[in-house]
Amino acid sequence: MASSMKSSLIIFFTCSLFLQVALATYKREVICENLPNGVCAFSIASSGKRCLLEKSTTEDGISEYTCKTSEVIVGNMREHIESDECVEACGVDRNSVGISSDSLLEAQFTSKLCSPACYQKCPNIVDLYFNLAAGEGVYLPDLCNKQRTNPHRAAMELQSSGAAEDFADAPAPSPSSF
């Protein structure tokens, strides 16, 4: 009887240990500074803040990259590391140091960003570029609609000084609409 009790305790202890390891793995906190540089860009920390890749140069002139936590808070997402599928579908680069709205001027980039594979399935990246476009006075859903119907005209309108005025009065969608 004592040996069956020992066996039961050993089995119980082993199972509880596996459960603790599984829960610890599942509840792993995402901290930007702990992420490898290869997954930093387009990730969101447990705090809800975006991660960004920063470049610095040592005294020896060697470039070093580090993952840092930005002050930009993403409303509905936490603990998110962007998938390779979304990075490819949206045409973004994980090695991006800083992200600019200038890429919205490139027809190829806008085409990928506005494609169903990106726009409908990658809300993190779409939200990021939605906010970048809004900072330029451009409403991304309208830009995508124009891009689908006439890609060259969409890029030209974005470059023109009147583009910001055309899109500035449009209502902003909620992040859940992505």
Rank of each mutant, 00 (worst) to 15 (best):
L19R: 04
S4W: 13
S115W: 03
P116M: 09
I99F: 08
T58S: 15
L140W: 01
D127S: 10
S7L: 07
G162W: 04
L143H: 01
V126D: 02
A163S: 14
K55L: 09
P175I: 13
A163Y: 05
V87L: 13
D102Q: 10
G38N: 05
T66V: 08
G61S: 06
A117P: 09
V138I: 15
N76T: 15
S70K: 02
S100G: 06
S174K: 00
E29S: 14
G137T: 12
A22L: 06
D84K: 07
S70E: 04
P175Y: 15
S176V: 15
S3P: 09
C67M: 07
I81S: 03
Q147F: 03
D93G: 05
F109C: 05
T58D: 14
V97C: 05
A168L: 04
T149H: 03
K49F: 14
A155N: 08
S177A: 09
G98R: 01
P171H: 04
A89G: 13
S160P: 13
Y65V: 07
L17M: 13
D169H: 11
K121T: 13
K27G: 07
S63C: 09
P36S: 12
F42N: 00
S8P: 08
A24F: 03
L158T: 09
E165K: 14
L158M: 10
S176Y: 13
G137Y: 00
S4K: 10
S46Q: 09
D60K: 03
K55C: 04
P171S: 07
S160F: 08
M156Y: 07
A164E: 13
V39E: 13
R94C: 00
C144E: 04
L113E: 02
A2I: 14
I11K: 02
G61F: 05
T66G: 00
F130D: 07
L19G: 05
T14D: 09
G61K: 03
A24R: 06
Y119M: 08
A133W: 07
V92N: 01
V72T: 12
T66A: 10
S115V: 03
S177H: 10
L17C: 14
M1V: 14
K49H: 15
M5A: 04
L113R: 01
T69S: 13
L132C: 08
A89W: 06
S63P: 09
L52Y: 15
I11F: 08
N145P: 06
